[in-house]
Simulated assay, not measured.
Amino acid sequence: MRWTSSDAPVVYAGETYVPVTLGRSEPESRNELSRADLTVTVSLNNPSARTWMQSSLDSLITLTVFAKEDADVTVVWKGRLASIKPTDATIELLLESIFTSLRRPGLRQKYQRVCPHVLYGKGCNLDKAGFAVADIATAVSGTSMTISAAASYPAGYFTYGMIKTAGGVFRMITNHSGSSITLIRPVDFAGDFNITIYPGCDRTITTCNDKFGNRNNFGGFPYIPLKNPFNGSSIV
């Protein structure tokens, strides 16, 4: 997306920047603006921000801020979207400077028994469409609901999975037993109770292999010994 705070479209480098209502917070205290973290505020109805708010931010979303004075255009800030915070009337995009990546360790995966990958995300590489179960939610009350199709699967099959509404909103499933599903928090169905549910994973190699047939992408180290073979101390 290409936005401008101007009241008219701006064309730069062959691209058109569309005027939208937006604001920017005062940068954090830094010697250089380019190294500061920013908060960009847009309207609650901004379609791009609403899409990012409903996703898990698995994909990298970057922002480049240009300053235009007459014919001169300069880059004053670059960074990535770190998190999103909706308010009553706006959506706040919390962004961190590109310089913060220089402070991170190069290797971030831990030596652990369970898999660190996000289910259906990068590293896991499962296509969630292949595990989707479509149905209609009934007896909805807060975080609890009844989904008849879920009764065809063993208890816990959808636990730690997710539900997707017809409006594209995702919610994590915290418990599944029979046709009963419990969500991490309520969801607004907006009158359309058609949903899609996806099974969950407890991140063990047994579940990865037996439930999803995805052992080749398992990212944990399930065979870590319980005790250090050299001195007998615990290493887990």
Rank of each mutant, 00 (worst) to 15 (best):
L57C: 06
S83F: 05
L38K: 05
S152V: 00
I84M: 07
L57P: 03
S180G: 08
Y120V: 03
V76L: 09
V140G: 07
S59Y: 08
D88N: 12
F131K: 00
C124G: 04
E69N: 12
V73Q: 12
L94C: 04
Y120Q: 08
T74H: 08
P47K: 03
R103E: 12
K68H: 06
H117W: 15
A129P: 02
G161M: 01
N175C: 09
D72L: 15
K128E: 13
T39F: 00
Y111V: 14
D58L: 10
G130D: 13
L126N: 11
L93R: 06
Y153C: 10
L102V: 07
L44E: 10
G123H: 03
G123A: 02
T174M: 08
G130W: 09
G79Q: 09
Y160F: 07
T51S: 07
L95T: 13
W52P: 03
L126Q: 02
G106L: 15
A149M: 06
V73T: 14
K128N: 05
C115F: 02
A139K: 06
L57F: 01
N175D: 08
A151V: 00
T90Y: 11
R171L: 04
L57W: 01
G106K: 13
R80V: 13
K110P: 02
K128C: 02
T64F: 02
M162N: 05
K85S: 07
T143E: 14
R104N: 11
T39K: 12
L126M: 04
I98F: 10
S144V: 10
D72S: 14
V40Y: 12
S152G: 15
M172E: 14
R80I: 12
S59G: 11
V133H: 04
F158H: 00
M172D: 14
S101H: 11
A67Y: 11
T41D: 07
I147L: 01
G142S: 08
A166F: 01
T159L: 06
A67M: 13
S141K: 13
A150S: 13
G156E: 09
D88G: 15
S48K: 01
R103S: 14
Q54K: 13
F66M: 04
F66G: 10
G178R: 08
D135L: 03
L38V: 00
S55C: 00
C115W: 02
A139M: 06
R108W: 02
F158A: 03
R113Q: 05
I173L: 04
D70G: 14
H176M: 07
R108Q: 15
L44D: 03
H117Y: 08
S55F: 08
K78Q: 15
Y111M: 13
S179Q: 15
V40M: 11
T90I: 04
S144K: 14
D135Y: 11
V169E: 10
S148C: 08
T41V: 14
V40C: 01
I173P: 03
M162S: 15
V133K: 05
M145D: 08
L57I: 09
A82V: 05
A132E: 07
N46V: 00
Y157S: 07
L95W: 03
D72A: 15
H117L: 01
S43K: 01
S83D: 12
